[in-house]
Amino acid sequence: MIKFSKHSGIYSLEALQILNTSLEQAWELLSDPGNLEKITPPEMNFTITSEGDEPMYAGQIITYKVTPFPGIRSNWITEITHVRQKEYFVDEQRFGPYKMWHHEHRIIEHENGVLMKDRISYKLPFGFLGAITHPFIVKPQLQKIFRHREKVLAEMFNQ
């Protein structure tokens, strides 16, 4: 399920998915930045450019190159600001295509495995011009990304 809302000029996206796996396996996959490429649509040309393969930690800076919209290649820099092992982590954009990006990744034990809950709060650049692109460009692109991720994760966990 993917749901959008807007409040005070900030957009929110909430995505829920049940994964047929253990909390440990879900955390191992989702908290490893190296797996982002696997769950991102290939046409986004998502590439991690930062070095290191250490476990996720608060304060970690991760850099990427990504094509968020057709024809636009962008550097994206995020910081992992909060981590609670096997519960949640938060990444925040420091530089990239959005004016603001705050992404909470939560996993919760569920009777059918693990409930994965994402909540993204974001603000678009370019004021009014950015706002008019939301329903035609930004929202469909985010829906596409999360639907792709949902499909890939379901296949990975044999659902």
Rank of each mutant, 00 (worst) to 15 (best):
M1S: 15
K3M: 09
S5Y: 06
H7N: 10
Y11S: 09
Y11Q: 06
S12V: 04
L13C: 07
I18P: 03
L23D: 00
Q25L: 13
D32M: 06
G34D: 08
K38R: 14
E43S: 11
M44I: 05
T47V: 14
T49H: 08
E51T: 14
G52S: 08
P55S: 11
M56W: 10
Q60M: 15
I61M: 12
T63H: 01
I72T: 12
R73Y: 13
S74F: 05
I77G: 01
T78S: 14
E79S: 08
T81M: 01
V83M: 05
R84L: 15
Q85F: 08
Q85V: 12
Y88T: 02
Y88D: 04
Q93S: 09
F95P: 07
G96Q: 01
K99R: 12
K99A: 09
H102D: 11
E104Q: 12
H105V: 04
H105I: 11
R106W: 14
I107E: 09
N112L: 13
L115W: 04
L115F: 05
R119N: 06
S121W: 12
S121L: 14
F128Q: 09
I132L: 15
T133D: 01
P135D: 04
I137Q: 02
I137Y: 04
V138N: 00
P140Q: 09
K144V: 06
K144Q: 13
H148L: 10
E150G: 14
A154G: 06
N158L: 14
Q159P: 00
